[in-house]
Design a protein around this nucleic acid. Structure first.
Lengths: 211, 211
DNA sequence: GGATCAATGAACAATATTGTCAATAGCTCC
DNA sequence: GGAGCTATTGACAATATTGTTCATTGATCC
Protein backbone atom coordinates (compact mmCIF):
# COMPACT_ATOMS: atom_id res chain seq x y z
CA UNK A 1 0.00 0.00 0.00
CA UNK A 2 0.99 3.58 -0.05
CA UNK A 3 2.19 3.27 -3.58
CA UNK A 4 4.64 5.91 -4.64
CA UNK A 5 2.92 9.28 -4.67
CA UNK A 6 1.71 9.83 -8.21
CA UNK A 7 2.61 13.07 -9.82
CA UNK A 8 0.21 15.96 -9.10
CA UNK A 9 -0.31 16.23 -12.80
CA UNK A 10 1.53 19.49 -13.07
CA UNK A 11 2.65 20.44 -16.49
CA UNK A 12 6.27 21.45 -16.63
CA UNK A 13 7.25 21.23 -20.29
CA UNK A 14 9.87 18.64 -20.87
CA UNK A 15 12.39 18.85 -23.66
CA UNK A 16 13.51 15.67 -25.30
CA UNK A 17 16.75 15.26 -27.24
CA UNK A 18 17.98 12.22 -29.02
CA UNK A 19 20.49 10.17 -27.09
CA UNK A 20 23.55 11.47 -28.91
CA UNK A 21 22.67 15.10 -28.41
CA UNK A 22 21.92 14.51 -24.74
CA UNK A 23 25.17 12.67 -24.24
CA UNK A 24 27.12 15.46 -25.91
CA UNK A 25 25.37 18.08 -23.80
CA UNK A 26 26.13 16.19 -20.60
CA UNK A 27 29.71 15.53 -21.64
CA UNK A 28 30.23 19.24 -22.28
CA UNK A 29 29.03 20.08 -18.80
CA UNK A 30 31.12 17.29 -17.33
CA UNK A 31 34.25 18.46 -19.08
CA UNK A 32 33.90 21.91 -17.62
CA UNK A 33 33.78 20.40 -14.17
CA UNK A 34 36.71 18.12 -15.03
CA UNK A 35 38.91 21.08 -15.82
CA UNK A 36 38.01 22.90 -12.62
CA UNK A 37 37.73 20.21 -9.97
CA UNK A 38 39.29 17.15 -11.57
CA UNK A 39 37.85 13.67 -12.04
CA UNK A 40 37.20 12.94 -8.38
CA UNK A 41 35.51 16.29 -7.90
CA UNK A 42 32.82 15.68 -10.47
CA UNK A 43 29.32 15.56 -8.94
CA UNK A 44 26.33 14.20 -10.77
CA UNK A 45 24.01 16.90 -9.50
CA UNK A 46 26.29 19.72 -10.59
CA UNK A 47 26.84 18.20 -13.99
CA UNK A 48 23.12 17.66 -14.41
CA UNK A 49 22.34 21.21 -13.34
CA UNK A 50 24.91 22.61 -15.76
CA UNK A 51 23.51 20.50 -18.56
CA UNK A 52 19.97 21.51 -17.66
CA UNK A 53 18.77 17.99 -16.91
CA UNK A 54 18.07 15.96 -13.82
CA UNK A 55 20.69 13.67 -12.44
CA UNK A 56 18.83 10.44 -13.21
CA UNK A 57 19.02 11.49 -16.83
CA UNK A 58 22.79 11.54 -16.56
CA UNK A 59 22.75 8.07 -15.07
CA UNK A 60 20.36 6.91 -17.75
CA UNK A 61 22.76 7.96 -20.50
CA UNK A 62 26.01 6.87 -18.92
CA UNK A 63 25.09 4.10 -16.52
CA UNK A 64 27.07 5.31 -13.56
CA UNK A 65 29.17 8.18 -12.35
CA UNK A 66 32.30 6.15 -12.98
CA UNK A 67 31.39 5.48 -16.59
CA UNK A 68 30.57 9.15 -17.08
CA UNK A 69 34.00 10.11 -15.78
CA UNK A 70 35.68 7.55 -17.99
CA UNK A 71 33.77 8.84 -20.99
CA UNK A 72 34.68 12.44 -20.38
CA UNK A 73 38.33 11.57 -19.78
CA UNK A 74 38.47 9.63 -23.00
CA UNK A 75 36.85 12.44 -24.94
CA UNK A 76 39.13 15.03 -23.35
CA UNK A 77 42.26 13.09 -24.18
CA UNK A 78 41.20 12.85 -27.80
CA UNK A 79 40.45 16.56 -27.85
CA UNK A 80 43.82 17.33 -26.30
CA UNK A 81 45.58 15.23 -28.87
CA UNK A 82 43.73 16.87 -31.73
CA UNK A 83 44.27 20.39 -30.48
CA UNK A 84 47.98 19.75 -29.99
CA UNK A 85 48.35 18.30 -33.44
CA UNK A 86 46.64 21.25 -35.07
CA UNK A 87 48.56 23.70 -32.92
CA UNK A 88 51.83 22.16 -34.01
CA UNK A 89 50.86 21.84 -37.62
CA UNK A 90 49.54 25.39 -37.71
CA UNK A 91 53.00 26.57 -36.82
CA UNK A 92 54.36 25.23 -40.08
CA UNK A 93 57.56 23.36 -40.60
CA UNK A 94 59.71 26.39 -40.17
CA UNK A 95 61.61 25.88 -36.98
CA UNK A 96 62.58 29.52 -36.85
CA UNK A 97 58.97 29.91 -35.89
CA UNK A 98 59.57 27.86 -32.81
CA UNK A 99 58.38 30.79 -30.78
CA UNK A 100 55.05 30.82 -32.57
CA UNK A 101 54.77 27.09 -32.10
CA UNK A 102 55.36 27.31 -28.38
CA UNK A 103 52.75 30.06 -28.19
CA UNK A 104 50.28 27.97 -30.14
CA UNK A 105 50.83 24.92 -27.99
CA UNK A 106 50.70 27.01 -24.84
CA UNK A 107 47.38 28.57 -25.71
CA UNK A 108 46.06 25.19 -26.80
CA UNK A 109 47.03 23.83 -23.39
CA UNK A 110 45.63 26.75 -21.43
CA UNK A 111 42.37 27.40 -23.22
CA UNK A 112 39.89 24.67 -22.43
CA UNK A 113 42.17 23.82 -19.52
CA UNK A 114 43.86 20.93 -21.29
CA UNK A 115 47.00 21.31 -19.24
CA UNK A 116 44.92 21.17 -16.08
CA UNK A 117 43.26 17.98 -17.26
CA UNK A 118 46.60 16.33 -17.94
CA UNK A 119 47.85 17.20 -14.47
CA UNK A 120 44.61 16.13 -12.80
CA UNK A 121 44.82 12.78 -14.52
CA UNK A 122 48.44 12.19 -13.63
CA UNK A 123 47.91 13.21 -10.01
CA UNK A 124 44.91 10.97 -9.64
CA UNK A 125 46.80 8.05 -11.08
CA UNK A 126 45.04 7.66 -14.40
CA UNK A 127 47.13 6.12 -17.09
CA UNK A 128 48.03 8.24 -20.10
CA UNK A 129 49.55 5.75 -22.44
CA UNK A 130 50.90 6.24 -25.92
CA UNK A 131 47.43 5.83 -27.37
CA UNK A 132 46.37 9.10 -25.81
CA UNK A 133 49.29 11.41 -26.31
CA UNK A 134 51.87 10.80 -28.96
CA UNK A 135 55.19 12.47 -28.30
CA UNK A 136 57.20 10.26 -30.60
CA UNK A 137 55.65 11.87 -33.65
CA UNK A 138 56.61 15.30 -32.36
CA UNK A 139 60.09 14.07 -31.65
CA UNK A 140 60.44 12.59 -35.12
CA UNK A 141 59.19 15.71 -36.83
CA UNK A 142 61.38 17.97 -34.73
CA UNK A 143 64.42 15.84 -35.31
CA UNK A 144 63.89 15.82 -39.04
CA UNK A 145 63.64 19.59 -39.08
CA UNK A 146 66.71 19.84 -36.93
CA UNK A 147 68.74 17.68 -39.26
CA UNK A 148 67.49 19.61 -42.27
CA UNK A 149 68.56 22.82 -40.65
CA UNK A 150 71.99 21.56 -39.66
CA UNK A 151 72.83 18.72 -42.04
CA UNK A 152 76.33 18.38 -40.69
CA UNK A 153 75.29 18.55 -37.04
CA UNK A 154 75.75 15.49 -34.92
CA UNK A 155 72.49 15.92 -33.08
CA UNK A 156 71.16 12.65 -31.75
CA UNK A 157 67.53 11.73 -31.68
CA UNK A 158 67.92 11.25 -27.95
CA UNK A 159 68.92 14.87 -27.56
CA UNK A 160 65.97 16.04 -29.61
CA UNK A 161 63.64 13.85 -27.60
CA UNK A 162 64.87 15.35 -24.35
CA UNK A 163 64.41 18.82 -25.77
CA UNK A 164 60.84 18.01 -26.67
CA UNK A 165 60.25 16.60 -23.20
CA UNK A 166 61.69 19.72 -21.62
CA UNK A 167 59.45 21.95 -23.70
CA UNK A 168 56.45 19.79 -22.89
CA UNK A 169 57.14 19.86 -19.18
CA UNK A 170 57.62 23.61 -19.26
CA UNK A 171 54.44 24.22 -21.22
CA UNK A 172 52.18 21.86 -19.31
CA UNK A 173 53.43 22.93 -15.91
CA UNK A 174 53.69 26.52 -17.04
CA UNK A 175 50.05 26.61 -17.96
CA UNK A 176 49.07 26.21 -14.33
CA UNK A 177 51.94 27.57 -12.30
CA UNK A 178 53.95 29.87 -14.51
CA UNK A 179 52.08 32.94 -13.23
CA UNK A 180 52.87 32.03 -9.64
CA UNK A 181 56.48 31.14 -10.34
CA UNK A 182 57.25 34.12 -12.55
CA UNK A 183 55.75 36.49 -10.04
CA UNK A 184 57.66 34.70 -7.32
CA UNK A 185 60.93 34.89 -9.21
CA UNK A 186 60.75 38.64 -9.46
CA UNK A 187 59.57 38.72 -13.05
CA UNK A 188 56.26 40.47 -13.36
CA UNK A 189 52.91 38.79 -13.37
CA UNK A 190 50.23 38.60 -16.00
CA UNK A 191 50.08 36.96 -19.40
CA UNK A 192 52.77 39.29 -20.72
CA UNK A 193 55.33 37.80 -18.42
CA UNK A 194 54.39 34.28 -19.47
CA UNK A 195 54.56 35.23 -23.11
CA UNK A 196 58.01 36.73 -22.63
CA UNK A 197 59.07 33.59 -20.86
CA UNK A 198 58.01 31.44 -23.79
CA UNK A 199 59.83 33.73 -26.17
CA UNK A 200 62.95 33.35 -24.06
CA UNK A 201 62.46 29.57 -23.96
CA UNK A 202 62.15 29.43 -27.74
CA UNK A 203 65.46 31.25 -28.13
CA UNK A 204 67.08 28.95 -25.59
CA UNK A 205 65.94 25.83 -27.40
CA UNK A 206 66.97 27.17 -30.79
CA UNK A 207 70.39 28.08 -29.42
CA UNK A 208 70.70 24.54 -28.13
CA UNK A 209 69.79 23.17 -31.54
CA UNK A 210 72.37 25.40 -33.17
CA UNK A 211 75.12 24.60 -30.69
CA UNK B 1 13.78 8.57 28.68
CA UNK B 2 15.75 6.27 26.56
CA UNK B 3 18.95 8.02 27.46
CA UNK B 4 21.83 7.29 25.10
CA UNK B 5 22.83 3.70 25.46
CA UNK B 6 25.60 3.64 28.04
CA UNK B 7 28.71 1.78 27.19
CA UNK B 8 28.52 -1.98 27.74
CA UNK B 9 31.48 -1.58 30.05
CA UNK B 10 33.81 -3.28 27.66
CA UNK B 11 37.44 -2.76 28.41
CA UNK B 12 39.37 -1.77 25.32
CA UNK B 13 42.50 -0.11 26.63
CA UNK B 14 42.62 3.49 25.60
CA UNK B 15 45.88 5.23 24.94
CA UNK B 16 46.13 8.88 25.77
CA UNK B 17 48.63 11.31 24.28
CA UNK B 18 49.08 14.95 25.07
CA UNK B 19 47.48 17.32 22.61
CA UNK B 20 50.67 18.15 20.72
CA UNK B 21 51.61 14.53 20.17
CA UNK B 22 48.09 13.70 19.03
CA UNK B 23 48.04 16.64 16.65
CA UNK B 24 51.38 15.64 15.18
CA UNK B 25 50.24 12.06 14.77
CA UNK B 26 47.08 13.15 13.02
CA UNK B 27 48.91 15.65 10.84
CA UNK B 28 51.31 12.94 9.73
CA UNK B 29 48.45 10.74 8.65
CA UNK B 30 46.74 13.67 6.96
CA UNK B 31 49.84 14.60 5.02
CA UNK B 32 50.11 11.12 3.60
CA UNK B 33 46.58 11.41 2.32
CA UNK B 34 47.30 14.91 1.03
CA UNK B 35 50.10 13.63 -1.15
CA UNK B 36 48.01 10.82 -2.60
CA UNK B 37 44.53 12.26 -3.00
CA UNK B 38 44.98 16.00 -2.60
CA UNK B 39 43.26 18.40 -0.22
CA UNK B 40 39.72 17.73 -1.40
CA UNK B 41 40.23 14.00 -1.21
CA UNK B 42 41.07 13.96 2.48
CA UNK B 43 38.50 12.03 4.54
CA UNK B 44 38.27 12.25 8.28
CA UNK B 45 37.64 8.56 8.74
CA UNK B 46 40.64 7.52 6.69
CA UNK B 47 42.90 10.00 8.43
CA UNK B 48 41.63 8.83 11.79
CA UNK B 49 42.11 5.19 10.89
CA UNK B 50 45.66 5.87 9.69
CA UNK B 51 46.43 7.76 12.86
CA UNK B 52 44.90 5.02 14.98
CA UNK B 53 42.21 7.21 16.53
CA UNK B 54 38.52 7.74 16.02
CA UNK B 55 37.34 10.53 13.80
CA UNK B 56 35.77 12.59 16.60
CA UNK B 57 39.25 12.76 18.09
CA UNK B 58 40.44 14.41 14.90
CA UNK B 59 37.64 16.92 15.12
CA UNK B 60 38.40 17.48 18.77
CA UNK B 61 41.96 18.46 17.97
CA UNK B 62 41.37 20.47 14.82
CA UNK B 63 37.85 21.76 15.08
CA UNK B 64 36.71 20.85 11.60
CA UNK B 65 37.80 19.10 8.47
CA UNK B 66 38.55 22.44 6.85
CA UNK B 67 40.82 23.55 9.66
CA UNK B 68 42.61 20.22 9.53
CA UNK B 69 43.24 20.63 5.83
CA UNK B 70 44.47 24.16 6.32
CA UNK B 71 46.80 23.01 9.07
CA UNK B 72 48.29 20.21 7.00
CA UNK B 73 48.74 22.48 3.99
CA UNK B 74 50.50 25.07 6.07
CA UNK B 75 52.78 22.47 7.62
CA UNK B 76 53.50 20.89 4.24
CA UNK B 77 54.44 24.20 2.67
CA UNK B 78 56.87 24.90 5.46
CA UNK B 79 58.34 21.44 5.09
CA UNK B 80 58.65 21.91 1.34
CA UNK B 81 60.42 25.18 1.80
CA UNK B 82 62.80 23.73 4.35
CA UNK B 83 63.61 20.67 2.29
CA UNK B 84 64.27 22.77 -0.79
CA UNK B 85 66.55 25.13 1.10
CA UNK B 86 68.58 22.28 2.53
CA UNK B 87 68.66 20.50 -0.83
CA UNK B 88 70.04 23.60 -2.50
CA UNK B 89 72.48 24.42 0.27
CA UNK B 90 73.69 20.83 0.41
CA UNK B 91 74.77 21.18 -3.19
CA UNK B 92 77.29 23.83 -2.24
CA UNK B 93 77.98 27.06 -4.04
CA UNK B 94 79.79 25.37 -6.86
CA UNK B 95 77.69 25.79 -9.93
CA UNK B 96 79.63 23.13 -11.75
CA UNK B 97 77.72 20.88 -9.43
CA UNK B 98 74.51 22.02 -10.95
CA UNK B 99 73.76 18.45 -11.83
CA UNK B 100 74.02 17.38 -8.20
CA UNK B 101 71.83 20.27 -7.21
CA UNK B 102 69.13 19.33 -9.68
CA UNK B 103 69.29 15.77 -8.41
CA UNK B 104 69.00 16.93 -4.83
CA UNK B 105 66.05 19.17 -5.56
CA UNK B 106 64.40 16.49 -7.66
CA UNK B 107 64.64 13.88 -4.93
CA UNK B 108 63.47 16.44 -2.38
CA UNK B 109 60.45 17.10 -4.56
CA UNK B 110 59.68 13.45 -5.24
CA UNK B 111 60.25 11.90 -1.85
CA UNK B 112 57.47 12.87 0.49
CA UNK B 113 55.56 13.83 -2.62
CA UNK B 114 56.26 17.53 -2.29
CA UNK B 115 55.91 18.10 -6.00
CA UNK B 116 52.54 16.41 -5.92
CA UNK B 117 51.43 18.65 -3.09
CA UNK B 118 52.45 21.76 -4.99
CA UNK B 119 50.49 20.67 -8.04
CA UNK B 120 47.46 19.63 -5.99
CA UNK B 121 47.39 23.02 -4.35
CA UNK B 122 47.73 24.94 -7.58
CA UNK B 123 45.08 22.86 -9.32
CA UNK B 124 42.64 23.27 -6.47
CA UNK B 125 43.17 27.01 -6.45
CA UNK B 126 45.05 27.44 -3.21
CA UNK B 127 47.29 30.43 -3.08
CA UNK B 128 51.02 29.85 -2.83
CA UNK B 129 52.34 33.31 -2.19
CA UNK B 130 55.89 34.44 -1.60
CA UNK B 131 55.58 33.60 2.07
CA UNK B 132 55.46 29.93 1.24
CA UNK B 133 57.97 29.45 -1.51
CA UNK B 134 60.77 31.88 -2.09
CA UNK B 135 62.25 31.79 -5.56
CA UNK B 136 63.83 35.23 -5.40
CA UNK B 137 66.47 33.95 -3.01
CA UNK B 138 67.35 31.16 -5.36
CA UNK B 139 67.48 33.61 -8.23
CA UNK B 140 69.74 35.98 -6.33
CA UNK B 141 72.10 33.23 -5.26
CA UNK B 142 72.23 31.76 -8.73
CA UNK B 143 72.82 35.10 -10.34
CA UNK B 144 75.64 35.91 -7.96
CA UNK B 145 77.32 32.61 -8.77
CA UNK B 146 76.80 33.22 -12.45
CA UNK B 147 78.44 36.62 -12.29
CA UNK B 148 81.29 35.24 -10.26
CA UNK B 149 81.85 32.55 -12.84
CA UNK B 150 81.70 34.92 -15.81
CA UNK B 151 82.62 38.37 -14.50
CA UNK B 152 82.62 39.90 -17.94
CA UNK B 153 79.40 38.26 -19.03
CA UNK B 154 76.45 40.46 -19.66
CA UNK B 155 73.98 38.11 -18.07
CA UNK B 156 70.93 39.91 -16.79
CA UNK B 157 69.12 39.00 -13.61
CA UNK B 158 66.03 38.55 -15.74
CA UNK B 159 67.73 35.84 -17.74
CA UNK B 160 68.86 34.08 -14.60
CA UNK B 161 65.37 34.32 -13.16
CA UNK B 162 63.89 32.73 -16.25
CA UNK B 163 66.45 29.96 -16.08
CA UNK B 164 65.51 29.27 -12.49
CA UNK B 165 61.84 29.23 -13.43
CA UNK B 166 62.50 26.81 -16.26
CA UNK B 167 64.40 24.49 -13.97
CA UNK B 168 61.65 24.73 -11.36
CA UNK B 169 58.92 23.95 -13.87
CA UNK B 170 60.88 21.03 -15.24
CA UNK B 171 61.59 19.58 -11.80
CA UNK B 172 58.12 20.03 -10.32
CA UNK B 173 56.33 18.78 -13.38
CA UNK B 174 58.96 16.16 -14.00
CA UNK B 175 58.42 14.67 -10.57
CA UNK B 176 54.95 13.59 -11.57
CA UNK B 177 54.98 13.18 -15.31
CA UNK B 178 58.55 12.75 -16.41
CA UNK B 179 58.23 8.95 -16.40
CA UNK B 180 55.19 9.11 -18.65
CA UNK B 181 56.66 11.69 -20.97
CA UNK B 182 60.10 10.12 -21.26
CA UNK B 183 58.61 6.75 -21.99
CA UNK B 184 56.27 8.41 -24.46
CA UNK B 185 59.09 10.26 -26.19
CA UNK B 186 60.94 7.06 -26.92
CA UNK B 187 63.48 7.43 -24.13
CA UNK B 188 63.32 4.53 -21.76
CA UNK B 189 61.32 4.41 -18.57
CA UNK B 190 62.39 4.08 -14.99
CA UNK B 191 64.38 6.31 -12.67
CA UNK B 192 67.47 5.91 -14.81
CA UNK B 193 65.86 7.73 -17.66
CA UNK B 194 64.76 10.56 -15.38
CA UNK B 195 68.21 10.84 -13.91
CA UNK B 196 69.76 11.01 -17.36
CA UNK B 197 67.28 13.68 -18.29
CA UNK B 198 68.28 15.81 -15.31
CA UNK B 199 71.92 15.34 -16.20
CA UNK B 200 71.17 16.52 -19.72
CA UNK B 201 69.19 19.47 -18.34
CA UNK B 202 72.07 20.49 -16.10
CA UNK B 203 74.42 20.56 -19.08
CA UNK B 204 71.90 22.56 -21.08
CA UNK B 205 71.51 25.17 -18.37
CA UNK B 206 75.24 25.43 -17.80
CA UNK B 207 75.78 25.84 -21.53
CA UNK B 208 73.26 28.64 -21.51
CA UNK B 209 75.06 30.31 -18.62
CA UNK B 210 78.35 30.05 -20.49
CA UNK B 211 76.98 31.28 -23.77
C1' DG C 1 43.98 7.76 47.50
C1' DG C 2 40.90 11.32 45.64
C1' DA C 3 39.75 15.34 42.79
C1' DT C 4 40.25 17.57 38.59
C1' DC C 5 41.12 18.14 33.70
C1' DA C 6 41.45 16.79 29.15
C1' DA C 7 41.59 13.24 25.60
C1' DT C 8 38.92 9.56 23.69
C1' DG C 9 35.26 7.13 21.40
C1' DA C 10 30.34 5.13 21.02
C1' DA C 11 26.12 6.64 19.51
C1' DC C 12 23.57 9.84 17.20
C1' DA C 13 22.25 13.62 13.84
C1' DA C 14 22.33 15.99 9.49
C1' DT C 15 23.52 16.45 5.03
C1' DA C 16 25.53 14.98 0.56
C1' DT C 17 25.91 11.84 -3.07
C1' DT C 18 25.01 7.99 -5.84
C1' DG C 19 21.87 4.83 -7.57
C1' DT C 20 16.91 2.66 -8.33
C1' DC C 21 12.23 2.58 -9.87
C1' DA C 22 8.16 3.64 -11.88
C1' DA C 23 5.31 6.99 -14.03
C1' DT C 24 5.16 10.61 -17.48
C1' DA C 25 5.70 12.64 -21.86
C1' DG C 26 7.91 13.81 -26.29
C1' DC C 27 8.83 11.87 -30.82
C1' DT C 28 8.22 8.83 -34.86
C1' DC C 29 5.78 5.74 -37.56
C1' DC C 30 1.51 3.81 -39.05
C1' DG D 1 -5.41 10.04 -34.05
C1' DG D 2 -3.15 5.96 -31.94
C1' DA D 3 0.71 2.75 -30.71
C1' DG D 4 5.31 2.03 -29.55
C1' DC D 5 9.63 3.50 -28.07
C1' DT D 6 12.52 5.81 -24.94
C1' DA D 7 14.14 10.08 -22.95
C1' DT D 8 12.99 12.34 -18.80
C1' DT D 9 12.11 13.07 -14.05
C1' DG D 10 9.99 12.89 -9.19
C1' DA D 11 10.31 10.12 -5.31
C1' DC D 12 12.68 6.98 -2.83
C1' DA D 13 16.66 4.08 -1.02
C1' DA D 14 21.31 3.33 0.52
C1' DT D 15 25.56 4.76 1.74
C1' DA D 16 29.22 8.21 2.81
C1' DT D 17 30.82 12.01 5.27
C1' DT D 18 30.97 15.56 8.56
C1' DG D 19 29.78 17.20 12.89
C1' DT D 20 27.68 16.85 17.93
C1' DT D 21 26.88 14.92 22.46
C1' DC D 22 28.15 12.77 26.39
C1' DA D 23 29.90 9.16 29.25
C1' DT D 24 34.35 7.16 30.10
C1' DT D 25 39.08 7.08 31.25
C1' DG D 26 43.89 8.09 31.47
C1' DA D 27 47.00 11.39 33.51
C1' DT D 28 48.35 14.95 36.77
C1' DC D 29 48.16 17.44 41.03
C1' DC D 30 47.12 17.74 45.99
Amino acid sequence: MLARMPKPAKGKPRRRLDADAARALILDATEKRLVVVGPSGIRLQEVAADAGVSHPTVLHHFGSRDLLVKAVISRSLHAINASLVTAIEASGGDESRLEAMLDNVATALEESGHARVILWLVLEGHRIDGTDVRLTHVVDATHALRLARRPRGKATREDTARTVVLASLALVAGAVLAPTMLENAGLGGGPRSASDFRKWLARLLLAHFDA
